[in-house]
Each structure stands twice: as C-alpha cells, then as structure tokens.
Amino acid sequence: TYTYKLTDEEASRRAEDEWRNRGYDVRVRNNNGTWEVEVR
C-alpha cells in the first residue's frame, strides 16, 4: 500500500486516475487539507 500526501486536489485526482488505469485499487481522502491518495 502506497500513500501519497498532496496539497493539491487536482494532483490527487490525476494520481487517482493514473493508478486506477493501471488496475490498482485507489482511495482518496482529505485529511485536514492534505489529500491522501492510497494505492493498493
């Protein structure tokens, strides 16, 4: 499981799409203004 911490929502969406396209399960959540993109 990888977790990315990003401050930019758009960057988190791009990361989400990119990993999803590669067949990974992705979750995005906002934690106090930081976007966490979790990849498994």
Rank of each mutant, 00 (worst) to 15 (best):
T1E: 06
Y2F: 13
Y2R: 12
Y2C: 15
Y2N: 06
T3F: 11
T3W: 10
T3K: 09
T3Q: 05
T3E: 04
Y4M: 09
Y4G: 02
Y4S: 03
K5H: 13
K5E: 10
K5R: 12
K5F: 15
K5W: 14
L6M: 14
L6A: 10
L6S: 09
L6E: 06
L6Y: 15
T7R: 13
T7P: 15
T7N: 13
T7C: 13
D8Y: 04
D8N: 11
E9P: 06
E9G: 05
E9H: 07
E10G: 08
E10V: 09
E10K: 08
E10S: 10
A11T: 09
S12Y: 07
S12D: 02
S12C: 14
S12P: 02
R13M: 08
R13P: 01
R13S: 05
R13C: 06
R13Y: 06
R13F: 05
R14G: 05
R14P: 02
R14N: 08
R14E: 08
A15G: 03
A15L: 15
E16Q: 11
E16A: 15
D17E: 15
E18A: 11
E18Y: 15
E18S: 09
E18T: 10
W19S: 01
W19L: 07
W19Q: 01
R20V: 06
R20S: 06
R20K: 11
N21T: 10
N21W: 05
R22F: 05
R22A: 11
R22W: 06
G23E: 02
G23V: 00
Y24C: 09
Y24A: 04
Y24L: 04
D25W: 11
D25I: 13
D25F: 09
D25K: 07
D25R: 07
V26H: 01
V26T: 04
V26F: 01
R27N: 12
R27F: 14
R27H: 14
V28Y: 04
V28P: 00
V28D: 03
V28C: 08
R29F: 13
R29Q: 11
N30R: 09
N30L: 12
N31R: 09
N32P: 01
N32R: 06
N32Q: 08
G33A: 02
G33H: 03
T34R: 07
W35L: 03
W35T: 02
W35D: 01
W35N: 00
E36Y: 14
E36P: 00
E36W: 13
V37E: 00
V37K: 00
E38W: 06
E38Y: 08
V39W: 02
V39I: 11
V39C: 09
V39S: 00
V39Y: 02
R40C: 08
R40I: 12
R40T: 12
R40Q: 10
R40L: 12
